[in-house]
Design a protein around this nucleic acid. Structure first.
Length: 889
RNA sequence: GCACGAGUAGCUCAGUGGUAGAGCGGCUGUCUUACACACAGUUGGUCAGGAGUUCGAAUCUCUUCUCGUGUACCA
């Protein structure tokens, strides 16, 4: 037998198996298979992305699910791919351009060439993350990898757009949108993060035009004052009623503007008067529309002041202009006061600058199938886990607003709309465009460009990236694949994209794919650092999963993370936990190595002793626990059960108890032990394999299990059936064996305690004597000696211990540790007295409970009986301990 | 403001009505021929505070506090 290294080295092993699985096509899905289908689509990571801990958690869970499904005999599709990530990807390439000498912008390059550059960048650098997922061991069907802009996917996006347009759900309109002045594009509401910010509240004097006084108006945005078209007060406000209808002088670019009455103004807030700036505030826009007010836009697309009438501010950055405008107002003596103020400012999720409410021409979608989507989750057709996310989801759907789907970007799906060349300018200015304009032949909407392209101009904008992602569960599949694998079974994703992605996919599924896109959604934890902060690049608190894989192995990383993360609440990431994963892999490896040192088992049918039956019975239970936990998506239970079975039950108890069988003694016992070990390992590796696929695969081969199955890899082998474990043994036989084994392990614990209490080293070869209270055989006694690290353990019914011999009460009876010359009666007396004290307390507690009539009458009989049994047990022990004390006297 | 989640051992987390748990850490021993990435022993908790329901509460109800997340916002 070749000498194996003492420590497990994952790197080579993991790569080996990843390659082999791929080359054997183990991950590939067969749509023509008649096995039941199981499918998942991956949440497509950004093509610019690199693997982070969130991906690791997410994809490990998916991999567990699909690998287990394969073992259960399902035809599995795990469909991978990447997202074109409009803004992120375009920004990457623009950054490269900016680094050139001289620096260039995309406008210098031009749309066609720029697109070519992004595609080149994507082909060269994109999809790093795909390889990283492979390093993690993800068993996706890589041959079906999709990209949200590839040439089968793109037509689907255009088709969906066209259909929704024809249905009247997509329209173009001039509306207030969230404008990102850095990226110079519109954003959806979901891409704006409201952030509490420290700012100033300026109170400014607006003089009445008739010279009869002034009106105080508070604002946080004095730089837009030139765009004021009115001042509004609440019609019910007694202070200002008489002023409505009069005019005030706008402090900058002085003009008379009316004082109007509108319910929207809060009487209590600030001065009770509100400046109305329809071009730069959402609610002001509404008020303006209602009162038919002019709209004056004084900001450029990139957030600079555009107001030639105010030369001091014209051309300034919006924040510079804010200070400057206050200087101007103060110089005019119109500044009443400045206060510190905290308000919520909408920040761009992408560029992290305050967004501008901006009036612009954009495409909008009135969501389809909102009702179906809401009902599906409400009535359990789609199950959310943890369940509480259903509430968040329902709440969002209730207040749902039209989705701004156009982006002023180049990288993405270009809007499939063309304008008649001769009418293009006119159409650009229209207040709203919809199906009527298409019917009139002024615009063309379609998957293919118009037949006479020279007469048409295509819309300049691209679609929001999510407008392609929301089709992911079906647009990634061809007809054959869809027939077999749609709807998918599970979706595993972070709760942070419940609106961006999950909700929209459900709607798209109902509208475009004849029903729900998935049956279950598992929302993962969000991985945070030890201070509880979200992991982010800028904080530098996110460990690189590839480093972790290098240190601990992919299996170690997967296992370690799953041990702490999976219940659905956020998790604080601690690298220590990953180390545990590695240690566990090492433990497993060594346990297998130990088996390999023992040689072959005979083909003779084994005769099991109690410890064999005990571990096999626990193995059988493990099957149930694992199946149950996975069916309920309780990954924590799954992982813990696997861990504790192997480390505690199998290694620490069972293996330690049977080691001697392998070295010496009865060949029949040795044979039974080898059979048991092989059975446990064979089943266990299979149960563990979904979470630690590489090491289990490696050991499956090394232990020769693959050879018995035509060399097939573990991952393609059906799960061994638990039914045949201990077949033919009666339940009584099994439970008796388990009781004896438990007694053995408990007794061994007491024996080790005794040694420790007398400061005897673990490896000190002592002698134990048991005065048995139940029939114990030599087999048990020799296992006891082994477990307790003793020279011998003997059962002697008539043993008379010398006074002061250390002793303990065990399930086997009184246990003695005869120590020649080390006898201290007082020490023994005090030890036993202490134990007696404890037990007396327990008895008192138990007695109190049982003499409580309410308890006896109202508690379930089983609970009362249990308590009675407990009391009897304590009292027996007490009597024994008292006898021991007497013997010492 | 509203909604949801969390608060259990020094740390990270299990535990949805019946004797408070695991791993790590700490402390003591041990290189006992599978494993020092290990073994053995041991130390850690008024289950955030208060009230209630119950024979019995970490668990159910109410309430207070702290933290997190989402969502709505008034300049």
């Amino acid at each position: 037998m070749t000498e194996l290294p003492k420590a497990y080295e994952p790197t080579v092993v993991e790569e080996k198996w990843q390659n082999r699985w791929l080359s054997e096509g183990c991950f590939n899905a067969d749509p023509q298979s008649d096995k039941p289908a199981y499918s998942i689509v991956i949440p497509p990571p950004n093509v610019t992305g690199v693997l982070h801990m969130g991906h690791v958690l997410n994809n490990t869970i998916q991999d567990i699910l699909v690998r287990r499904a394969r073992q259960e005999g399902k035809e599995v599709l795990w469909l991978p791919g990447t997202d074109h990530a409009g803004i992120a990807t375009q920004a990457r390439v623009e950054k490269e351009l900016a680094k050139e000498n001289p620096p260039r912008t995309r406008y210098d390059v031009g749309r066609t060439d720029f697109m070519k550059m992004v595609w080149e960048w994507k082909d060269k650098h994109g999809g790093i993350i795909i390889n990283q997922l492979k390093r993690l061991g993800c068993s996706c069907d890589w041959e079906r990898e999709r990209f949200t802009m590839d040439d089968v996917y793109a037509p689907e996006v255009a088709r969906v757009f066209t259909e929704l347009f024809k249905e009247g759900l997509i329209y173009r309109g001039r509306r207030m949108v969230n404008w990102d002045p850095v990226l110079r594009t519109a954003l959806s509401d979901e891409e704006v993060i409201m952030t509490p910010s420290k700012s100033k509240l300026y109170t400014i004097r607006y003089k009445l035009a008739d010279g009869s006084g002034q009106l105080l108006v508070s604002t946080t945005r004095p730089e837009t004052i030139m765009a004021d078209v009115a001042v509004a007060v609440n019609p019910k406000d007694p202070r200002f009623g008489h002023l409505v209808g009069k005019t005030v002088i706008r402090p900058l670019v002085e003009t008379e503007i009316p004082i109007i009455a509108d319910e929207h103004v809060e009487i209590e807030f600030g001065t009770g008067a509100l400046k109305i700036t329809p071009a730069h505030d959402r609610t002001d826009f509404e008020v303006g529309t209602k009162h038919n007010l002019e709209i004056i836009d004084v900001l450029t697309a990139d957030g600079h002041i555009n107001c030639p009438d105010c030369p001091e501010l014209h051309g300034l950055d919006r924040f510079v202009a804010r200070d400057k405008s206050i200087e101007l107002i103060e110089a005019k003596g119109l500044l009443e006061k400045v206060e510190d103020y905290e308000n919520n400012v909408g920040m761009s999720e992408r560029s992290h600058v305050p967004i501008e409410p901006r009036l612009s021409m954009q495409w909008f979608l009135k969501y389809p199938c909102v009702k179906e989507a809401a009902e599906a989750v409400a009535n359990g057709d789609i199950v959310f886990r943890p369940a509480h996310w259903a509430k968040t989801y329902a709440h969002w759907l209730e207040g749902i607003q039209d989705w701004c789907i156009s982006r002023q970007l180049w990288w993405g799906h270009r809007i499939p709309v063309w304008y008649r060349k001769d009418k293009a300018d006119e159409l650009q200015e229209a207040a709203k465009l919809d199906e009527a304009d298409a019917a009139a032949g002024d615009i063309y909407v379609g998957v293919e460009p118009p037949a006479d392209p020279e007469n048409w101009v295509q819309d300049e904008d691209a679609l929001d990236t999510w407008f392609s992602s929301w089709l992911w569960p079906f647009a990634t599949m061809d007809a054959e694949c869809r027939a077999k694998f749609y709807p998918t079974c599970d979706l595993v994703t972070g709760p942070d994209i419940i609106f961006f992605w999950v909700a929209r996919m459900i709607m798209a599924g109902y509208r475009f794919a004849d029903g729900k896109p998935f049956s279950n959604v598992f929302f993962t934890s969000i991985v945070r650092d030890l201070q509880g902060r979200k992991m982010s690049k800028s904080l530098g608190n996110s460990p690189d999963p590839l480093d972790l894989i290098a240190h601990y192995g992919a299996d170690g990383l997967r296992f370690g993370l799953m041990r702490i993360a999976p219940t659905g609440t956020d998790v604080k990431f601690d690298e220590k936990q990953i180390e545990e994963g590695k240690n566990f892999a090492n433990k497993l490896y060594n346990a297998a190595r130990f088996r390999m040192m023992q040689g072959e088992a005979d083909s003779v049918a084994p005769v099991f002793t109690s410890v064999h039956i005990d571990i096999l019975s626990k193995l059988k239970e493990l099957h149930v626990t694992v199946a149950d936990a996975l069916s309920k998506y309780e990954f924590n239970t799954y992982t813990q059960a696997l861990y504790s079975f192997f480390w505690n039950e199998y290694c620490s108890l069972f293996l330690e108890a049977v080691k001697n069988d392998l070295r010496e003694g009865d060949p029949a016992v040795k044979n039974a032990t080898l059979h048991t070990i092989d059975t446990v390992l064979r089943h266990y590796l299979a149960l563990l394999s979904p979470i630690m696929p590489h090491i289990t695969e490696e050991l499956w081969q090394s232990l020769g299990f693959a050879a018995r199955n035509e060399g097939k890899p573990l991952m393609s082998t059906p799960l061994p059936s638990a039914e045949h474990l201990l077949a033919g043994l009666s339940d009584t036989h099994i439970s008796k064996a388990r009781a004896l084994s438990t007694a053995l392990y408990d007794t061994a614990n007491r024996a080790r305690n005794l040694k420790a209490e007398y400061n005897l080293a673990t490896n000190k070869k002592v002698r134990f004597v048991v005065k048995p209270s139940l029939p114990v055989d030599d087999d048990l006694m020799s296992r006891l000696a082994l477990l307790a690290g003793a020279q011998s353990a003997t059962a002697e019914p008539d043993y008379e211990a010398p006074k002061g011999t250390p002793t303990a009460l065990t399930p086997f009876g009184e246990l003695f540790l005869p120590l020649d010359g080390l006898v201290d009666v007082e020490a023994e007396r005090s030890r036993i007295s202490k134990e007696l004290e404890k037990i007396t307390k327990e008895i008192a507690k138990s007695n109190a409970k049982l003499s409580n009539a309410s308890f006896v009458d109202r508690a379930p009989a089983a609970v009362v009986d249990q308590e009675r049994a407990r009391l009897v047990e304590w009292e027996t022990k007490k009597a024994q301990l008292e006898a021991m004390l007497t013997a010492l006297a």
